[in-house]
Amino acid sequence: MDNPMLQAVRTLLRETFEGPEKNASWYTESKPGSGLFGTLEKISAEDASISVNGTTIAAQTDHTRYYLWVANSYLNEEEPKKDWEASWKITNVDKITWTQINNELHQEYTKLLKKIDLLDSLDEQTSNGLLGTIAHSAYHLGSIRQMIKAIKI
């Protein structure tokens, strides 16, 4: 991948989801496990189901997964049938459902990275979509980390 913008998008997505590389960060906490995946692996299904200000970590996580699915659909040049409200309906999860949500989040993230690797240039629409995906995912990472503080995991 020779495109500096695509390299930057990949780097920032990786930091958001996987955490920073080598204890150096562009915008997250610079210690290992600071990304979304490292943050979520410490959360039980029970804790993911605790309501904080009207939402749960499970809902925040599934909404982030849903957003990645929408981004992947657009990169496939498909018009997804969106139901944003449905992406917030999850409240209580058991261990199996919590594991499934996390696995699906990983799958959508991996699909997105593979799609980015196939791009050689970016038009304005794709640029906005990818940058929006970084910002949106980072927002929910921050929300989840604040929710963890509120429930004192």
Rank of each mutant, 00 (worst) to 15 (best):
W69V: 00
S127D: 04
I153M: 09
E85K: 15
M147A: 05
A150E: 14
S87P: 07
K81Q: 15
F17K: 07
L6T: 01
H140G: 11
Q60V: 09
I96T: 09
I57G: 08
W98Q: 12
Y74A: 05
S87V: 11
A138S: 15
D47A: 13
Q60P: 03
Y74S: 05
A45S: 14
W84M: 07
A59W: 00
S44Y: 02
S121I: 05
K111G: 01
V70Y: 10
D62T: 03
N3H: 11
F17N: 08
L112C: 04
Y67W: 09
D117K: 13
L68Y: 09
H106D: 06
L75I: 15
T126Y: 04
L122D: 04
N23V: 00
N92W: 02
N102Y: 02
E21H: 08
K115A: 14
E46Q: 10
S127M: 07
S49F: 08
D117A: 14
A71Y: 03
N102I: 04
G35H: 02
S44V: 03
E77F: 15
T28R: 02
I153F: 06
Y139T: 08
F37A: 11
G129A: 15
M1R: 03
T97V: 15
A58F: 12
T39I: 01
P20E: 01
A86F: 13
S49I: 11
E29P: 01
I90L: 08
D120E: 12
Q60K: 13
E46Y: 07
H136R: 09
Y109C: 06
L118D: 08
A59P: 01
L119V: 07
N128K: 14
T28N: 06
T110C: 00
P20Y: 01
K82D: 13
E77C: 15
T11A: 11
H136T: 14
N102T: 07
H63P: 02
K114H: 02
A86Q: 13
G33H: 11
E29N: 08
